[in-house]
Design a binder for these strands. Structure first.
Lengths: 169, 169
DNA sequence: TTGGAAAGTCAACAAGGCTGACATAAAATC
DNA sequence: GATTTTATGTCAGCCTTGTTGACTTTCCAA
């Protein structure tokens, strides 16, 4: 690897934030994100769904009973955009939309058994890659990976990420 | 932070690869990538360009004189898709396309001064975020960040990433 | 000289973003 | 009780950026 840049050579060197180092990080994000989405995309390509469907199913699976508005703020898209995706998922019997009991304006979203199956297939594929990457890099690297990613998020998104983190732990 | 999951508590714990840990990594990638692209997107939004233009300019800046075919394999899109982007960049005087000297079929791509200016504005914004994230997470975390991302890439993309890495170092 | 690779172009299409306008039901407020 | 706000859904239309397929031009090399 021979990292550490122009500093005293790796380890606890000073902040080795040359433009070169930063550029490598940027390109690493670019290439890694392609790998990150490649496996689910392959599965989705065979069906009539896309990445947007995957994202919706992921967060519905993660927070069953979440409302449309909540999902909207997590995904960061317009309701028209989300609705198009959600409609097809509901029509195809992958997602169920239940009217809220306390507030009947709200729709609570759940994966059906069929939806759960697809979500599992997709996340199995994505997890397999993530697992392999974690194994290859080692536990210490995983720690750093998560720290940098978290620091890279917009503050608002970081809050949502952390809320999700707690909720699932 | 209190990481380390269900293992013996952080540090060199065994492979703590629970589905929960993996899912957090997946969501971290999702939220972080949004932050990663947010700043350039804001700049591009004001102009008539999109993320695809940014990517093309980034890699032309990075490897001046690269051929269209080379760029194609780095970006992983079809030549029609790239060509549309490239055409507007050339028309607008941001990119120059020179016929190859040894192989006149090839077009070698260069940023014009105008193109260099925009590229710098975009990458300055992106680097600023990356720098802040690196600073917040610390040198050791940066090491891990890069290791995990590299392990997450498809083998072919990893090779391209590493080639770029060497070329620029 | 002819085959094939590199590059470019045109047409058509799809996914998934976006805005704006509007409808409905229910909750909240006055 | 009337009004306003909120949550959701929907229609129409637009943009970017990806796709496939068909075709042309250029030009290297066998």
């Amino acid at each position: 690897m021979a990292e550490g840049g122009p500093g005293p050579g790796g380890g606890e060197s000073l902040l080795f934030l040359t433009d070169e180092q930063l550029r490598k990080g940027i390109e690493a994000m670019f290439f890694a994100y392609r790998g990150f989405t490649a496996d689910p995309d392959r599965i989705l390509g065979d069906l009539d769904y896309g990445r947007a469907h995957h994202r919706a199913m992921h967060f519905i699976h993660r927070s069953p009973g979440t409302t449309v508005n909540n999902l909207l703020s997590i995904l960061g898209v317009t309701k028209q955009s989300l609705n198009r995706v959600l409609r097809t998922l509901i029509e195809d019997g992958l997602v169920e939309s239940r009217v809220g009991r306390v507030d009947k304006r709200e729709r609570h979203l759940y994966l059906t058994p069929k939806g759960t199956d697809l979500e599992r297939a997709l996340s199995d594929a994505q997890r397999a890659r993530m697992r392999a990457a974690y194994r290859a890099a080692g536990p210490a690297a995983v720690q750093g990976f998560r720290q940098v990613l978290e620091a890279m998020m917009d503050p608002e998104l970081r809050r949502q990420y952390q809320t999700l983190k707690e909720g699932g732990a």
